[in-house]
Design a protein around this nucleic acid. Structure first.
Lengths: 237, 237
DNA sequence: CCGGATCCGGTTAGATACTG
DNA sequence: CAGTATCTAACCGGATCCGG
């Protein structure tokens, strides 16, 4: 552990040695967001190699940030659960996110969009309030994406707080279709553009049940259930 | 910039790409603490190679976190000044420090003490309140250190807010001598031990002007001007 | 002294493939 | 599903050197 260390007796240095290694902060973000299993985490950090993910999880375990726990009913499968020390990393990840939202130029980064990351982020963070009056299926169609990642289905059940996400047809009738491109949807989700504005510019189209449409427009309006980092004032271009 | 990037459109990932590289957070800490010149920064991160320091400063400049500015009266010497984006990194460094103080085991790290870092941290953070009634010199003597780093002098002037630090005899009479070892002084400074307790255990000895001694004991008492991270409750051994 | 640049060897990370 | 294995490229630490 002393190997490669900063050898500084300072709390900032001690924390940095653990958190400020490549990919670690982003991995901790995934854990804080609720992912627990290896392949769930892998989906959240798709450009991280499984070998490095495995190593980082071991490092985090050694640092007392996660522990392994067997999954019920599934032998040979383990989960990575945050300890209290791990949960206490929240302010670090939060302040990183606030600073990034405020000070990093977004244009270059808008080249690196990923429909999977976007949809999972939406699944985790959308609060369907007002609730639909019945279980509803919303299909997202990204006109600029290849077939494999073009279509996504969110299933919102008023009896269930959790939203479900499918990347293949769920088999239920679709109540609302959202047609747009990935860039537009990402910008709406990040709060760079309002849904109303994108709608007015015809960058997004909603068709289907008009009662549900009205509710979805409310869910995705500023100050409601957009990305946790939407609404932070940008101070660079 | 896209090279080696996480390629994730997420504020946490965007900030991590800049901040969470080796040494960067610790370097930013130094800048936030007020160091501006290359060799001042080098002193604050003594184990960082000058080549890497130079590279990191360039990276920070490119990221809009610092800018270079010529030093008045000293041609060919430049300073690194934090921009507003750089000053806004404070919450990140602060949350790293709080987490580190709370969750990183200190025992292994107490092997990596450094009198230079300690004295400069004290110089920057001690608030001499109550003030001495005249310019006073306090000599620290670390019994366990080699000659080169055994003796340090703090010069406190009631007419001047800034404390001066010397590693060679300043030429003025010494008003107060502090005899201890580096580990004891570090623990007091970090809030792991109180000065009173160390005094009772005879791990530290103060000799000289008793009025000044009384004031110094107040400066170094919990809740006063110890390290910014003193007073955070440890939740691991 | 100040502010780096250069070279070299060791470590780390990415790409890809593979396995129980 | 949950990781290893392997190979290569990039990065980092340490020492040395250089121009003002």
């Amino acid at each position: 552990m002393t190997k490669g260390s900063y050898k500084q007796f300072c709390p900032v240095a001690m924390a940095s040695e653990i958190i400020c290694t490549r990919w670690t902060a982003v991995l901790v973000r995934e854990l804080l967001m609720g992912s627990t299993r290896f392949n769930d985490l892998r989906r959240g950090v798709p450009r991280m190699s499984p070998a490095l993910l495995s190593k980082r999880l071991k490092d985090l375990e050694e640092a007392g940030i996660v522990y392994r726990s067997p999954v019920e009913d599934e032998p040979d499968v383990e989960q990575y659960i945050l300890t209290q020390a791990g949960k206490d990393l929240y302010p670090i990840v939060e302040s990183l996110g606030i600073w990034g939202a405020r000070w990093v130029e977004t244009e270059p980064s808008l080249e690196n969009l990923d429909p999977t990351l976007l949809m999972w982020d939406m699944r985790r963070n959308i609060i369907p309030d007002p609730k639909p009056n019945k279980r509803s299926v919303i299909q997202f169609m990204y006109s600029d994406q290849p077939k494999a990642t073009k279509n996504w289905w969110l299933i919102v059940d008023p009896k269930n707080d959790k939203i479900d996400l499918c990347s293949v047809e769920p088999g239920f009738d679709v109540d609302l279709y959202v047609s747009t491109d990935l860039r537009t949807m990402t910008k709406i989700w990040m709060g760079f553009e309002t849904l109303s504005n994108a709608f007015a510019e015809e960058d997004i189209l909603l068709t289907g049940n008009s009662d549900l449409e009205e509710k979805v427009r409310l869910w995705l309006s500023p100050g409601k259930s957009l990305s946790p980092f939407a609404g932070i004032e940008k101070l660079v271009s």
